[in-house]
Design a protein around this nucleic acid. Sequence first.
DNA 1: TAACTTGTTTAAAC
DNA 2: TGTTTAAACAAGTT
Length: 263
Amino acid sequence: MPELCEVQIMTENLERWMVGQRVRSIEVVDDRLSHLKTAPTGIVNRVWRRAKYSIVELDDVSMVIHYRMTGQVVLEDENSRFVRVRWKLESGQSIGFMDPRKFGTVDVIANEVLEQWFKSKKLGQEIWPTVRDGAWWENVYTGVKSPLKTALLKQDRVVGIGNILASEFCFASGLTPFQATSSLTSEEWSRFGDAYYKRIEAILLEERSEKIGFLFEGAKNPDAFQVYGRQGESCPSCSDVIQKVQQSGRATYFCASCQPFES
DNA sequence: TAACTTGTTTAAAC
DNA sequence: TGTTTAAACAAGTT
């Protein structure tokens, strides 16, 4: 479930591993990614993130990685499993795209059309590292009536928030996930603006490493997650119990005391 | 075993 | 038209 924080960390890792290095060959393991067999190799000039994508930029083309549910990039070792494609570097190192459920994608896009390619995805605005204040959030969700938590998942407004961060941000700002987005006051948006950034920073701090712990089998969610996956546990800021409900077909976690809903 | 998990796209509904 | 919701899809885990 890589979202903004995890994609950011994996992008930083790819940057450290690959920039300035020559990709000597690309080894396709999963035939769904056979289009990578003919992808150009060469020096990696830049690695950057947009929304939940990592972009590995060579001279003429970029490889655009989307992790979906279970994708990860790792510096391969003997423990690497579920590798669908690997990039062999001149240094001898191998970068693997591990993806057990195979939902992830790696597109090869010519640099000259990359901007257009992203434009077709109709992606919204970034919320990190640029700090967005309450007025910005209020403005970006103008005209959105759906419940707050559902609205946060709309990638055409704001990118990077997935089902985990959506619950986390609501909790951190003391807002109910069920409130109509259009009914939030400026004061509430202001609280949201203060809270979300701190949550991202805290999660980045805890998760930043060569491997994202919670993405691996059997691993526990980070302590930095305050409500996600914690149904039945006690709320970190009061004595109430964290609840889990279905909202628009997705799991939503919240504390009814800290995030009261009065309709 | 079948339900559950997710981000994204498409279709349908409002 | 713009917005919202539901369904569908991928495949492995429980």
